[in-house]
Each structure stands twice: as structure tokens, then as C-alpha cells.
């Protein structure tokens, strides 16, 4: 049995590996230095790399993003932390208008090799302004690469690719996964951007998942064994580049697709997956495409209410059962 580690520790491990490897990597964000990050995802980095590599900032999301962008344009590889992904709205100009467009609108004169790390998602009872899954916000903007790992090893491997990418990457760390455990990443572990992973092979129904909906889908697949339904779980890992080849390849065998996504049904990334399948894989399907997504309401506080509106194993099991019997 390989060593187990937490998703939380994998974040600091992934950052530390790149900080050691490349002197142009530098971190900035609120409380990431001596405090080790509010989610304890940068613990030990300030001590190992010092104040010249790990920079505490004021609560100024625009200043953080702008500083990262300006540094990225001039030879550094900054990794900016935006504490909660909800706060991306405070600096949305940089993700919507500045960072993804600088290369294009200058005719290729500048590069912006930076990473924005942010804690995404619900399930912890933080209420409407600290619980959203907003990966679909970034997905509306051409020019951003989008990563959302589901396992500790992928956190490390995808972090390496994100930081080494010459393009801007938004790196969504799921709050609900920080305490989860998995195999530790081996030395020099690199996972390329845009390669989905078959997290569990199966024959009857394809479930496409991302980040926290991956373990949810794996739990559902386990339950569905009792029903005699064999579920293939695909962990997309990235929304951009989007690996639809793996999804379409799976549908050639299963002919049935459920997408499980935590962002809201309205405007959620599953709609794009479904749209591509409708365009390019219509004849592979024996049943409608189903989406198990966040409900179109703000995230409520109470556990019972929150559970009602975000994807759960039970909701996915139900959706797969109905689809399998279609």
C-alpha cells in the first residue's frame, strides 16, 4: 500500500515541489505566509522558502490578481490564491477581461503564465457567499485553462502542469475534499492538462464527474453494483482543455450518459458536455443525457437545505437507475 496523504497536504506539497524546482515560481495571497493559509494549504511554505517567495497580501483581490498578472508578463510564474472562489467576483475583471485576453489582443506580444488557486464548492455549511461551485464562471471565458482535481495525487500532478503552463490556469481546490485521503504523488509526478481519467471502468452507464463529484460518483457506482448496473466513472480533471475524446470513447460502449456537476444546472459545464455529445455522439446514445447538478438557487446554510440543492450520491444513484432502465 502506497503512502496516504490528504488533499490538503497535497496542495502544499504540489506548490513546494514547483517552488523548489523553479526560482521564478512565487506565491501571493491573503494569509498564505506565516499563517499557512486559512485552509492550511500553504503550511510550511513560508518557513521553507521565506518571505521572498511567499507573499502575504492585504484583502485586495484586484491588487492580488493584477500583481500576479504583471509579474507573469515580466518573467515570473506567480501563483495567486483567492481564498474562497466566491471572491473571484471581487476581481472578476482580471479573469474576464485582462488575463485571458492580454496575449490575444496584443497579437501575441505578451504571455501570462500564472495560476489562480481558489477553494471552491459546498458541503461545509458556509452559506451562500462561501460555498458556491463557480468553475462554470471561468468556463464562460475563452483564454483560461481550468483545473479541478479530485485526488491528492492529481492535486500534485496537475499543479505541476498548471504552474509550468505558459497559459493562465484557474485551479479549483474543492473545500469538501481537503480532508480526504489518497495515495501520495510519486516524485516528479506530472499530470498533463486535458487528460481525463477513467476513475472506475464500467459497461452500462457513463458518469462524467469533476472534483468532489468524483468520489460521489464512485460511491454511487459501488451502490449500483447491487442493482446489477455497471457504471464507468470519468474524472474530467480539467474543463479546459476538455477531454471529450475519453467521454465519447466511453459512450461507444455504454450508450448512456449522466453528468454530475456541483455548479448550478443553469449555465453549468455539464451543458457543454451534453451539447458536444449531442453534436458529435448523438448516434452513440440509447437514452437521453441526464444532468445531476446544483439546483438554481443560492446555496442555503442549514445542512438539510444545502444537501437538498447540491448533488448527492442518492440523487446520482436515482438518476443512473432511471437512465439504465430507459
Amino acid at each position: 500500500m502506497a503512502d496516504l496523504t490528504t488533499y490538503r497536504d497535497a496542495v502544499s506539497d504540489g506548490l513546494a515541489r514547483e517552488l523548489r524546482r523553479d526560482p521564478s515560481v512565487v506565491l501571493l495571497g491573503e494569509d498564505i505566509g506565516a499563517a499557512g493559509g486559512v485552509f492550511k494549504t500553504t503550511v510550511g511554505l513560508f518557513e521553507e522558502f521565506g518571505a521572498d517567495r511567499v507573499w502575504d497580501t492585504p484583502i485586495s483581490e484586484q491588487a492580488i490578481m493584477g500583481a500576479a498578472m504583471g509579474a507573469a508578463m515580466t518573467g515570473m510564474r506567480p501563483v495567486a490564491e483567492i481564498m474562497f472562489s466566491d471572491f473571484l467576483a471581487c476581481c472578476w475583471d482580471y479573469l474576464a477581461n485582462e488575463i485571458p485576453k492580454a496575449r490575444y489582443m496584443t497579437g501575441g506580444q505578451v504571455s501570462v503564465p500564472m495560476v489562480v488557486r481558489t477553494a471552491n464548492g459546498g458541503g461545509l455549511g458556509f452559506g451562500a457567499q462561501h460555498s458556491q461551485s463557480v468553475e462554470n464562471w471561468a468556463f464562460t471565458v475563452p483564454g483560461l485553462k481550468i483545473v479541478a482535481p479530485s485526488t491528492p495525487a492529481d492535486v500534485v500532478g496537475l499543479m505541476a502542469s498548471a504552474i509550468r503552463s505558459d497559459d493562465p490556469v484557474v485551479f479549483f481546490e474543492h473545500k469538501g475534499l481537503f480532508a480526504s485521503k489518497g495515495e501520495a504523488a510519486p516524485p516528479e509526478h506530472v499530470v498533463p492538462l486535458g487528460e481525463a481519467r477513467v476513475a472506475r471502468p464500467g459497461d452500462d452507464v457513463t458518469v462524467v464527474a469533476l472534483a468532489a463529484t468524483v468520489p460521489l460518483a464512485l460511491a454511487a457506482a459501488e451502490q449500483l453494483v447491487e442493482d446489477g448496473i455497471s457504471v464507468e466513472v470519468i474524472d474530467l480533471r480539467c474543463l479546459v482543455p476538455l477531454d471529450m475524446a475519453t467521454v465519447l470513447g466511453s459512450l461507444e460502449r455504454t450508450s448512456r450518459l449522466v453528468v454530475v456537476e456541483e455548479n448550478p444546472y443553469q449555465g453549468g459545464w455539464g451543458a457543454t458536455v451534453a451539447s458536444i455529445v449531442a453534436d458529435e455522439g448523438f448516434e452513440l446514445l440509447d437514452a437521453p443525457v441526464r444532468r445531476v447538478a446544483g439546483e438554481n438557487v443560492p446555496l442555503p446554510f442549514a445542512d438539510a437545505l444545502e444537501e437538498r440543492v447540491i448533488p448527492t450520491t442518492g440523487k446520482l444513484v436515482e438518476a443512473v437507475r432511471r437512465l439504465a432502465s430507459y
Binding site: M69, M76, D93
Partner: peptide, 30 residues
């Protein structure tokens, strides 16, 4: 823009480039 002369762009969202200038200066320090 004339990036090869250090003119790193003209930005049309009011105020957005002030934080970027900080970043370039921060990078120069580093």
C-alpha cells in the same frame, strides 16, 4: 502595445492596469 520596448499594453477597463504595474515592479524586484 509594444512589448519588446516595455510598453506592456493599453487596457480599456478603467483602473485595471495599476495593479499590473505593481506586478511588473514586484517582478523586477524579485
Amino acid at each position: 502595445t509594444r512589448a519588446d520596448h516595455g510598453m506592456l499594453g493599453s487596457y480599456a477597463i478603467v483602473g485595471a492596469h495599476l495593479p499590473m504595474a505593481n506586478g511588473a515592479a514586484w517582478s523586477a524586484r524579485l
